[in-house]
């Protein structure tokens, strides 16, 4: 009786068009997500960090960049300790100027995530465009684009980023440098990662462009631009999503590395990497928390994004199922 009613329900469901949420919940990806503890934990960690970064002004107990709220007497407060000057409780301690580490981490996370996302977006747009063009037109256009990519891939991406960063710094007037720094970071990290997008997209484009639906579109005189945008782009985007997730983790780490080396985010707008560099100065004098907590946050962020990317790659690759 019970099974009968459920089967007729299932039939009624199959007949009626399903809502988007329902279809999303029943999709393969959602099923795989529900059955992968690693993916769930990484997604929760990533979501918490993103929400913390987005709502930093609401969540942070102090504004670390407003000098008027700083109390120098509170400097070097230990985690869960009370400041000497104000007597307030600092969860993760304070730095030399009495800035709350928890608040600086939230604001730093914001800058790290923003730079990482924008850099990957920039790399993806550039790489996908060039990859599509190289794969579809072939010939000397492909040769030029892919040889540039090959040459670039032989340089370590940090080196390229430092080179671009150095040149851009030399060109910008000193008073604009701190404002420009973040955009220069985005461009320099993005420019060093576009190759990976371009290579993948080029090879999928070559495969797709030989399929008959592309011939059918050419036959009726569709322009190459329309074929690239409307026919090929939607069919090569699958792998791009996976690469984007993996390179998001790498872009965040690259940004932290550059900032740690002192060529990245300025101290007025510190990212996690800047915080780690500042904290490193105090490690040997015993103030370990200034280094440890930003490092742990960076670790959690990079690891969760990376594990999510790995999971997504496995799900979307039918060969591994």
């Amino acid at each position: 009786m019970n099974s009968q009613s459920t089967s007729s329900e299932a039939q009624a469901e199959a007949a009626a068009p399903k809502g988007f949420l329902r279809r999303a919940w029943e999709s393969d990806i959602a099923w795989s997500f529900r059955h992968s503890p690693v993916a769930i934990v990484s997604a929760v960690v990533f979501l918490v960090l993103v929400l913390g970064a987005v709502f930093a002004p609401l969540l942070a107990p102090y504004n670390p960049f407003d000098p008027s709220t700083l109390n120098l007497m509170d400097g070097f407060t230990v985690p869960m300790g009370q400041g000497l000057g104000s007597g307030e409780l600092y969860w993760l301690g304070t730095d030399d100027q009495g800035r709350d580490i928890f608040s600086t981490i939230l604001y730093g996370l914001r800058i790290s995530l923003f730079i990482g996302l924008m850099a990957v977006l920039f790399a993806a747009v550039l790489g996908v465009t060039l990859g599509l063009i190289a794969g579809y037109f072939g010939g000397w256009i492909e040769a030029v684009i892919m040889r540039v990519a090959d040459v670039q891939i032989t340089f370590p991406s940090i080196l390229i980023a430092m080179l671009i960063f150095g040149i851009a710094r030399g060109l910008t007037p000193p008073e604009l440098r701190d404002q420009m720094a973040i955009w220069v970071l985005i461009v320099s990290i993005g420019l060093s990662d576009w190759v990976y997008f371009a290579r993948t997209v080029r090879s999928s484009t070559i495969v797709e462009a030989q399929k008959e639906y592309v011939h059918a579109a050419r036959l009726i005189g569709r322009k190459p631009g329309a074929i690239l945008r409307k026919h090929l782009l939607p069919n090569v985007m699958g792998p791009v999503l996976v690469i984007a997730t993996i390179y998001l983790a790498l872009a965040i780490i690259a940004e932290a590395t550059l900032s740690f080396l002192g060529v990245g985010a300025p101290p007025t707008k510190p990212s996690l990497g800047t915080l780690i560099r500042i904290g490193q100065d105090y490690l040997f004098s015993g103030e370990w928390w200034i280094l440890l907590f930003p490092s742990l946050t960076l670790l959690a962020l990079a690891l969760s994004v990376n594990l999510l990317g790995d999971w997504l790659r496995d799900v979307l690759n039918p060969k591994l199922r």
């Binding site: 008959e212 639906y213 011939h215 036959l219 009726i220 005189g221 026919h231």
Partner: peptide, 19 residues
């Protein structure tokens, strides 16, 4: 010319954009 001529392809699985 393009209005006059059309083509039907061999592989019905590859001749339509799956998206």
């Amino acid at each position: 010319f393009r209005r006059q001529i059309q083509m039907i392809f061999q592989d019905p699985y590859a001749s339509m954009n799956p998206r």
